[in-house]
Design a protein around this nucleic acid. Structure first.
Lengths: 190, 190
DNA sequence: AGCATTTCTTTACATATGTAAATGCTCAGC
DNA sequence: GCTGAGCATTTACATATGTAAAGAAATGCT
């Protein structure tokens, strides 16, 4: 729980009052490797703080192929943010790639508390802005850089992740086939 | 000016007080075809309401090739949102593709007024969320669909735009070469 | 320790899409 | 109505990267 509060505080300093409000809303839970936190086609209702472990967000295209959109590496917030704020169905599933410890809360409750509370409203704005910025960053990287540059950036962004999850998940994140990732790794070591 | 207010109101209903605050901050201006509203490498400071015209947001990759990231078709908000909220340099330029009429304002001023104002804070949150959602939508489309589907969606999203701007801008938006777009158009009419 | 499963690499091959260049079209300006 | 500039299409060709399958390596389970 301290980790949760520390994490929020690192985004925006919070008052005692807001912290105690928060504390009441989050409950501890776990997510076993392979388990889903959100599924495609459902409406998201929960958000969670990822205290330990790795989660992937992925979508499935026409031909049934999976693409990893994001990794969440603790400490981080998980939950289908898009579905929560748009009240539309999920298009992106979230699945644990390792055993995870999480603290989850009802987003609806947070929204209720948020009503009229300037401080939480500001926190939510900053969260939205952060999501926007990291999406934007990834988008530009995907579009402007070639796969080996993206591979490098991924390694900086998620240090040590390659030891914890299979290469084909990395390849999928980079938007290339495992074969191609293998070629890149080979070239790099020349 | 009424159009500006109408546009904001369609996002979140605003109080009289906020509307009059707004009114003072925006001034009318124009953007001739080819002119830039924001340039790469600079720090953004302004935001604007696009009352008429079309603007493209684009970035340039390693090899100097341009890619259109977004079209803004009036009525819309322009300005390098990412640079404004992150206070980092622009990576994405914005250029008028037709003559435009805009209402611009200093983002810093908006932020100053925003301080402590719950209503504007909420407006800013919703703007951030909307940006996030439209980015997310585009990202999923780019990744999950093939170019001819994306072409279709683009036509629905920006009806009539093909009559106003050259095909190669459309191709660039779709992430394909003009040659390839031509092939798609040919196949479609078979 | 040994077997089974999963993951990674490599090879061979197919193909979608880009580049370059030539041709054809359209429309604005004279 | 002609001409030229800008744009779109088409052709020919090159190539990067995907798919499929086989082999090698690593990991985990009993």
């Amino acid at each position: 729980m301290e980790n949760l509060i520390k994490f929020f505080n690192s985004t925006v300093p919070l008052s005692e009052k807001v912290i105690s409000l928060m504390a009441g809303m989050f409950v501890c839970d776990e997510l076993r490797k392979g388990a889903y936190f959100v599924k495609t086609g459902e409406y998201a209702s929960e958000i969670a703080f990822l205290e330990t472990g790795i989660v992937r967000a992925f979508y499935v295209n026409n031909e049934g192929k999976e693409y990893n959109k994001t990794f969440f590496s603790a400490p981080s917030i998980i939950g289908s943010y898009a579905s929560l704020i748009s009240k539309q169905k999920n298009n992106v599933a979230q699945q644990a790639l390792t055993d995870c410890k999480i603290w989850k809360a009802s987003f609806h409750e947070i929204e209720k508390v948020s009503e009229g509370n300037f401080e939480i409203e500001r926190l939510r704005r900053m969260i939205a802005e952060n999501y926007f910025l990291s999406n934007e960053k990834k988008e530009l990287e995907m579009a402007m850089l070639d796969a080996d540059k993206r591979y490098l950036i991924m390694q900086e962004e998620y240090p040590g992740i390659e030891l914890k999850i299979p290469q084909y998940h990395i390849a999928s994140y980079l938007g290339i086939s495992p074969t191609q990732l293998s070629r890149i790794r080979k070239n790099r070591s020349l």
